[in-house]
């Protein structure tokens, strides 16, 4: 058996722990959950803003920090809805391959509806 010294053993320096971890591919469900949850967050803001404009008592209730008005309650509820939906979707989709195109189209629709809900001329139709 040949006597090999440490100096002769080739060391492959460009293989890092990160590469080994990346060998295990993450299913796209995890990304899908994050992307759809962002859409749900935006939709929540649009819905709350529009409903609060119609329903005065909700507008008053959402004034969590009165000097800034109802925007504080709307955004706090939006962030809770965003994080909660992300958590739930992540639990269901983390090990799955999802149809990312459908998920993304749904996300864009939610964001668009969110924009419509906060667009002042639209709100004034109901206020």
């Amino acid at each position: 058996m040949a006597n090999v010294s440490h100096e002769e053993i080739p060391v492959k320096t460009d293989i890092l722990l990160e590469d080994i971890q990346q060998e295990r591919k993450i299913p796209n469900g995890e990304a899908g959950a994050a992307i759809l949850a962002a859409g749900i967050g935006c939709l929540t803001m649009g819905l709350l803003t529009a409903v609060a404009a119609i329903w005065g008592s909700l507008h008053t209730f959402l004034q969590f920090y009165p000097p800034a008005g109802s925007i504080t309650g709307i955004t706090i509820v939006m962030v809770i809805a965003w994080l909660a939906s992300w958590f739930v979707l992540y639990r269901f989709w983390k090990d799955k391959q999802v149809n990312l195109i459908k998920v993304f189209v749904l996300t864009l629709a939610f964001i668009l509806l969110g924009v419509v809900g906060i667009f002042p001329p639209f709100i004034h139709l109901f206020a």
Partner: peptide
């Protein structure tokens, strides 16, 4: 002001 205060909140989430 109404549009500005609301739409700005989309940015950190996205």
């Amino acid at each position: 002001m109404a549009l500005k205060t609301h739409i700005g909140w989309f940015t950190p989430i996205l």
